[in-house]
């Protein structure tokens, strides 16, 4: 065989490559988190890094999220870039004060004297039967805390490119990795062999369409694609937008699409009230009201925690069926 088989990378390994490459490029950068060194992370995102960079630059931390985030703030104050892992994004609540009051406000409080190049990343999202404390999408808390950027990739290419961009950003970034996507076979893809980033603050149109715009991010992107296929059979073409970065939000891509389709459904798996879908809808109303032919709609989790067993979990989370029904209502308005 003379033809080399193309190397395909899954979502998890794409993340690992991003961290590895940034660590190699900056000898001052450190990684901290629970079980990230010896074990290589609960899901293996940091596997092998401690052997390469040593146990000071890749550090196992106590189960103490306030301490992890505070330590990241202190290291950044001395000029270091920091990647801090939250073992599950659900656990980020234990470090909440340090994130919203300290990390997020540092650059503001110091009138630009001290940037905070810190990435807090961790596995997020439901649909895996993880129950109340291993299923959350709590991005709304941080979108509501000025000073934090919020990112959520849905593909392997974006996982690597967005994480590299986040690690190079001088601002703190909360990075939502979708654990159900970590090892999905159909997300494996050939990644560029040269250095690349996906810039923060840029949405992308995944599918082009004319009759309705679906706006989402993370795991729900894959529900939206299925819905788009179903709508195609009904004779509707759907445009599907992957937001990718929630803060700062690329409004332009969304508004441009709505000007074309005149109908929009926003999908996310966070609870409805004060969720990010609501924020997108508010901006659509402010900026594209006159282009709309139907009320802008959303399909979100119910205002409940994420319960454990399948029928309960399915009942509260957005599904292909629920999204489809929301789209049909919007199309037939």
């Amino acid at each position: 065989m003379s033809v080399e088989q193309a190397v395909k990378t899954n979502y998890l390994n794409a993340l690992k490559q991003a961290i590895d490459e940034e660590m190699a490029a900056d000898s001052e950068m450190i990684c901290i988190g629970e079980d990230i060194a010896n074990l290589g992370g609960a899901f293996g995102v940091t596997e092998g890094l401690v052997d390469k960079y040593g146990k000071w630059r890749v550090q196992d931390m106590p189960i103490a999220e306030e301490c992890i985030v505070g330590t990241a703030v202190g290291a950044a104050l001395t000029g270091r870039r920091v990647m801090a892992e939250m073992q599950f994004i659900d656990f980020i609540s234990c470090g909440f004060d340090q994130i919203v009051n300290n990390l997020a406000t540092f650059h503001y409080r110091t009138a630009g004297e001290v940037p905070m190049p810190v990435v807090l990343r961790g596995p997020a999202g439901g649909y895996g039967g993880g129950a109340l404390y291993h299923s959350q999408m709590n991005e709304g808390w941080f979108c509501h805390s000025p000073g934090l950027k919020v990112v959520c990739p849905s593909t392997s290419y974006d996982a690597k490119g967005l994480l590299k961009a986040a690690l190079r950003d001088p601002n703190p970034v909360i990075f939502y990795e979708i654990k159900e996507l970590y090892r999905r076979k159909d997300l494996e893809e050939e990644l560029p062999t040269t250095d690349y980033i996906v810039p923060l603050g840029k949405a992308t149109v995944r599918r082009s369409g004319e009759h309705i715009t679906l706006v989402s991010y993370g795991q729900n992107m894959y529900h939206c694609y299925q819905v788009a296929d179903m709508l195609a059979k009904d004779g509707y073409s759907a445009e599907v937008i992957d937001i990718r970065t929630l803060v700062p939000l690329d409004e332009q891509t969304i508004m441009d699409s709505i000007k074309k389709t005149s109908r929009v459904v926003v999908v996310n798996e966070a609870p409805r009230t004060c969720g990010f879908a609501g924020e997108v809808l508010a901006r659509v109303c402010e900026n594209a009201f006159e282009y709309l032919d139907a009320p802008p709609a959303r399909c979100t989790r119910l205002d409940t925690p994420v319960p454990w067993v399948k029928p309960l979990e399915s009942f509260v989370l957005p599904s292909v069926e629920k999204i489809y029904n929301t789209c049909i209502r919007t199309l037939k308005y």
Binding site: C67, I68, G70, T71, V73, G74, A75, T78, R80, N102
Partner: peptide
């Protein structure tokens, strides 16, 4: 104090 720990670590 956690921030001081980060500075001390660095």
């Amino acid at each position: 104090i956690p921030v001081a720990a980060g500075v001390a670590l660095s």
